[in-house]
Design a protein around this nucleic acid. Structure first.
Lengths: 113, 113
DNA sequence: ATCAAGGTTATCCATATGGCTAACTAATCA
DNA sequence: TGATTAGTTAGCCATATGGATAACCTTGAT
């Protein structure tokens, strides 16, 4: 699977977006994160693994506890893709506007608008 | 399904991102879009329907041809979500930096750094 | 040495996804 | 009126996803 595939797929789920939001305010333990989600721990851990596989979060084990942290770089990659496409679209609209304007001036070359 | 779920899910596939990229340069017919993708037309149409269901594209039929157009607003919604989370994360880091700086000054109150 | 806490692994299940082919409809063209 | 073009619908299939439970393994506390 493509890298962007994994990133966007991670984001396409409310539970995972909530985890990201939780981690945006600072690192946390798996258990603390899980408390806010109404599902069995193994199900929750699957979401964590999805987020890790797309490098949106990292985690390391400290004793029997696992600490998790956001790595916003993956989010930036996603933003960049969106920004690029949006810009192509908008530049095109700008050129269209310019074209329309130019044509309008040609139709009224005396400048009476 | 949530709205953001649908948008991000749409983006989580290379074929669909390619369609978005194609449409960023301007509206196009289904057939023209499909030509660049190595899959059967019905499979391709499924991707189009996914994109439409998340309001990333719109289409209307003109005669026997279907014209498709990008609607970048959905992309902006996605960008906004990403931007918000990233900002929360970065504001937090800034506050941490400030804290560290403040503590450092307290340790060297004579200003010798 | 035992027991509890905090995850983790292994399965299992229903539904969704992404691909296919075959058969169909509706608009143009000759 | 036919034949062709451009989609569309209806099914089929393999794999992925998101949920569950039960059993297990470490680590920390007593």
């Amino acid at each position: 699977m493509d890298n962007l595939d994994r990133i966007f797929h991670s984001l396409a789920d409310g539970t995972r977006r909530a985890i990201i939001a939780q981690l945006a305010s600072g690192p946390a333990r798996v258990g603390d994160l899980a408390q806010h989600h109404d599902m069995a721990l193994p199900s929750f851990l699957k979401h964590m693994r999805v987020l890790e596989s797309s490098d949106i979060i990292v985690s390391r084990k400290v004793g029997r506890v696992r600490m998790c942290e956001l790595r916003p770089n993956a989010l930036v990659v996603a933003q960049n893709w969106l920004e690029r496409e949006r810009r192509i679209w908008e530049d095109r609209l700008d050129r269209l506007d310019f074209l329309v304007e130019t044509l309008a001036k040609k139709e009224t070359p005396d400048g009476t608008e």
